[in-house]
C-alpha cells in the first residue's frame, strides 16, 4: 500500500489561481490522486473536473436541546457557554443554534442531565470520480457561519493512500488552518502585485506557525513587479514555478475548461510543479531551510 501524502494549495489573497493550480496539478499527477475542495464557502473545483458525484453526506454539528420537564432554570449551562448560544429568560433556557460551536459544555454543566444533543446541518460532503481522480468537496449551507467542521469532514472523506490535493479557502484565519493542518506540503499561490505580496507574507507567517514545509507558485508572473520574487529570495522560500499571464488560460478558466487539456503547452508547468514538490518532499534538508 502506498502511503498518503497531502499537498495543500493555499493563498492569502483570493483569485490568485489556487483552484487552477489544484485541478491541473491533480490532472497531471501519476498514481492514485484525490482532489479535495476545502473552499467550502465557494467550492469551484467541480466546475473544471466535472466529477460524477456518487455520494452526498450531510454534515452536522451537535447542538443542545433542553428537556423542559427536567430543566430547573438554574442557568449553569448559560454560564458554561462561551459563545452566548444559550440564554435563560424567566426560568426557560433558549438555544441560539447558529451561535453554537458544538462543544458540549452545556451538557456537561447541567446538574439535572436535562440537555441532550441533536444534529444541526452545516453542509454536505460530496464524493465521486472525475476520470482517474477521486473527487471530494464540502459545500457550506447558505447562511451558516461555521465552516471549519465541514472542512474537517471533507478532509476525513479523502482516501487513505496516494496523493491528496487540498484546495484551501483564501485568507489566513480558522478555515485556512482547518484546511492546511496535517498536510505534508503547502503550495502558496500568489501574483506579483502589492496585494499579492502583502497577502503572501501573511500566508507565509501562518504556514510557518503551523510548521509545514511550503513553496510558492507565482501566477501571472509578468503582470506586476519584482517584489514577490525579491521577498522569496530574501526569506529563502523556494519558488516552485512561475506561470506567465496568458489570456488563453484565463479564457479556458472562464469556460470551466482544464488548462492542461485544452492547452498542451501549459502542461509542462504542472509537470514541473509536481517534480519540484516531490524533490522538496524527498529532500528533508532542502525543505527545512524554507521554514
Amino acid at each position: 500500500m502506498r502511503e498518503r501524502r497531502i499537498i495543500a494549495i493555499a493563498s492569502g489573497k483570493g483569485g490568485t489561481g489556487k483552484t487552477t493550480i489544484a485541478v491541473n496539478l491533480a490532472a497531471v499527477m501519476e498514481g492514485p490522486v484525490a482532489y479535495v475542495d476545502c473552499d467550502v464557502e465557494e467550492p469551484n473545483g467541480h466546475i473544471f473536473l466535472k466529477p460524477a458525484i456518487t455520494a452526498a453526506n450531510s454534515v452536522a454539528i451537535p447542538v443542545p436541546i433542553v428537556d423542559k420537564e427536567k430543566c430547573t432554570g438554574c442557568a449553569r449551562c448559560v454560564t458554561a457557554c462561551r459563545y452566548n448560544a444559550l440564554a435563560c429568560v424567566k426560568g426557560r433556557v433558549l438555544v441560539f443554534t447558529e451561535l453554537c460551536h458544538g462543544c458540549g459544555g452545556c451538557m456537561l454543566a447541567c446538574p439535572e442531565h436535562a440537555i441532550s444533543e441533536c444534529d444541526h446541518e452545516i453542509g454536505v460532503v460530496e464524493t465521486g470520480r472525475a476520470n482517474d481522480i477521486c473527487f471530494v468537496q464540502g459545500r457550506l449551507k447558505i447562511g451558516v457561519a461555521m465552516s471549519p467542521p465541514l472542512i474537517r469532514a471533507a478532509k476525513a472523506a479523502s482516501p487513505s493512500e496516494g496523493t491528496v490535493i487540498l484546495d484551501a479557502p483564501p485568507g489566513t484565519s480558522c478555515p485556512v488552518i482547518a484546511a492546511v493542518k496535517d498536510s505534508d506540503f503547502v503550495v502558496l499561490v500568489t501574483e506579483p502585485t502589492p496585494f499579492g505580496l502583502h497577502d503572501l507574507t501573511l500566508a507565509v507567517d501562518t504556514v510557518r506557525q503551523i510548521g509545514i514545509p511550503f513553496g510558492v507558485v507565482v501566477n501571472r508572473c509578468d503582470i506586476g513587479d519584482d517584489r514577490v520574487t525579491d521577498y522569496c529570495q530574501r526569506e529563502e522560500i523556494p519558488i516552485l514555478i512561475e506561470i506567465p499571464d496568458d489570456r488563453r488560460i484565463a479564457e479556458a478558466y472562464s469556460r470551466g475548461c482544464m488548462a492542461v487539456e485544452s492547452l498542451p503547452d501549459v502542461r509542462p508547468f504542472f509537470l514541473q510543479l509536481d517534480l519540484r514538490i516531490r524533490d522538496l518532499l524527498s529532500a528533508p534538508n532542502g525543505v527545512q531551510s524554507a521554514t
Binding site: 465552516s147 485568507g171 478555515p175
Partner: peptide, 11 residues
C-alpha cells in the same frame, strides 16, 4: 468586504 459566504461575510 471579505470573500466567501461564511462568518466574516455574514458579519
Amino acid at each position: 468586504g471579505p470573500p466567501g459566504i461564511g462568518c466574516p461575510v455574514i458579519a
